[in-house]
């Protein structure tokens, strides 16, 4: 059986991102994520948490919870939950990456980057919570880059 989730709740503001990052890094290290993959994990967390900080409660404020647990031998499952308005960031249209500089929209790349780096990602509305859950590979490390 997989171990229980470890959880951390902080204000849904950009200033909380680095504390969440340290928290999940702790779990990632214990679960066997190669240290050179930590940057990717930071990036995924930042992109998701910036969205929560910007859209979940505005103009009021609220909390966000990050929870993680290893799933099987190969993945870390991370869940990010808020109590804000219904918001599914995965519904956003994918950005058009074929455009040249003048026509390139400057936004919309965050969710695209997240999707590129996770094994899987899903949104669910659970009571009055938005929950975004993703799995991050534990065993990609150097092996994947040397192929």
């Amino acid at each position: 059986m997989d171990p229980p989730f470890k959880r951390l709740t902080l204000p849904a503001i950009a200033g909380s991102i680095s504390a969440f990052s340290q928290f999940v890094r702790g779990g990632a290290l214990a679960a066997g994520v190669a240290e050179n993959e930590f940057g990717k994990l930071d990036l995924i967390l930042e992109e998701i948490l910036v969205n929560v900080a910007r859209y979940a409660y505005s103009p009021e404020s609220g909390a966000v919870e990050v929870a993680y647990t290893p799933v099987g031998p190969h993945q870390l499952l991370v869940e990010i939950a808020d109590f804000g308005r219904v918001f599914n960031p995965l519904q956003a249209d994918p950005p058009d990456l074929s455009r040249g500089l003048a026509e390139r929209p400057i936004g919309g790349l965050g969710v695209f980057l997240v999707r590129s780096m996770v094994d899987s990602i899903a949104y669910r509305r659970e009571g009055d919570r938005n929950v975004l859950s993703f799995t991050f590979p534990l065993d990609r490390g150097d092996a994947g880059e040397n192929e």
């Binding site: 500089l101 003048a102 936004g107």
Partner: peptide, 21 residues
């Protein structure tokens, strides 16, 4: 540069568009 997120990409794009024009 060790790390850049989409907010950084946004800054690079915004600056490049201003310079191009």
């Amino acid at each position: 540069l060790q790390y850049v997120s989409s907010m950084g990409l946004r800054s690079f794009l915004s600056v490049a568009q201003k310079l191009q024009s």
